[in-house]
């Protein structure tokens, strides 16, 4: 029993981070219509930004995440306005090429500034834990889980209860209809894309508190968010959250029952099954509206 509970805790805590990580990507893809291949790079940029802030000002990543989130929001808005928006009419291939180019640029900047070495943010309480019913709960992972939950909830409230959030939903559901009643579609897409980027940046900061990171981690991240977004359904906040949790549980149980070296393959198998059987994702609807 103790072992089972420990595994459940492991999966749950991992799932929280996956959920947050998946939402930004899912919003960008599902609503702004951009498959953002630079998403992993943006997440890592969040990690490295909080590393700088930590090293220079000794500010805890759980505080600096607001700063990284804000910076990434502006960066996302800038990238959307000046590279993606002019090319949207060119179709999906153009956005793929552009976001891939952005990924390469960010990757090379990271390599230039920080090299390919692995980095960690060593907060004083890293490695601390507490016991819950006999299972060990790592403190940083627990905090990350709670914060991810809060951010997901706030994002949902933003989408449901603010004018901009409703505007974003409107253009997602029916672009022409929304434009006819005076919603500025490009502005909504821009805010949505920037919001997705900010969520990515915050994820990166949280990631940095629990894992070591180097530029190659961006590939790991982009692989995961594809699976999460597809499992949950595009542009759907709760769907992406559920997708993140599901992926974490699938990986964990795969590692337990089949063997650790299969844990990544199992995620991909589930993704293919979902694509074949439920192309709109497990949470049915195309949009969260």
């Amino acid at each position: 029993m103790g072992l089972g509970l420990q595994m459940f805790v492991n999966a749950l805590l991992l799932g929280g981070l996956y959920a947050l990580m998946g939402i930004g990507f899912s919003l960008q893809w599902g609503i702004s219509g951009i498959i953002n291949l630079s998403y992993g790079a943006m997440v890592l940029l969040g990690s490295y930004l909080s590393l700088i802030i930590f090293n220079m000002f000794h500010i805890d990543p759980f505080i600096s995440m607001f700063v990284t989130g804000a910076i990434l929001f502006l960066l996302g808005a800038f990238i959307y306005r000046f590279t993606l928006q002019p090319l949207l009419k060119g179709g999906i291939v153009f956005t793929l090429i552009v976001t891939f180019a952005i990924r390469l640029i960010i990757e090379n900047i990271i390599l230039l500034v920080w090299s390919a070495d692995y980095r960690t943010i060593r907060v004083s309480y890293a490695g601390s834990n507490f016991q819950f019913l006999g299972a060990f709960v790592p403190l940083t992972k627990f905090l990350t889980f709670i914060i991810a939950g809060v951010i997901i909830y706030l994002t949902y409230q933003f989408m449901m209860n603010t004018k901009i959030g409703k505007g974003i939903q409107a253009v997602a559901l029916d672009k022409e209809g929304a434009m006819a009643v005076g919603v500025d579609d490009q502005k909504m897409y821009l805010i949505n894309f920037a919001l997705g980027t900010a969520l990515g940046g915050v994820t990166g900061t949280l990631w940095a508190t629990i894992y070591s990171f180097s530029p190659h981690v961006m590939d790991v991240i982009i692989g995961r968010v594809f699976i999460i977004a597809i499992l949950g359904g595009l542009g759907n906040i709760w769907g992406a959250a559920a997708g993140g949790l599901l992926l974490a549980f699938v990986e964990t149980s795969g590692a337990i029952f089949i063997g650790s070296h299969w844990q990544e393959a199992i995620g991909l198998v589930i993704m293919v099954l979902v694509l074949l059987l439920r192309p709109h994702g497990l949470i049915g609807k195309k949009f969260f509206g």
């Binding site: 595994m7 492991n10 999966a11 991992l14 790592p138 894992y211 190659h216 981690v217 590939d219 790991v220 990986e251 964990t252 590692a255 337990i256 063997g259 650790s260 070296h261 844990q263 990544e264």
Partner: peptide, 12 residues
């Protein structure tokens, strides 16, 4: 037991 090269979490 092997784990995937480049894995980021081995807690399981």
């Amino acid at each position: 037991e092997k784990y995937p090269a480049g894995a980021t979490d081995l807690s399981v």
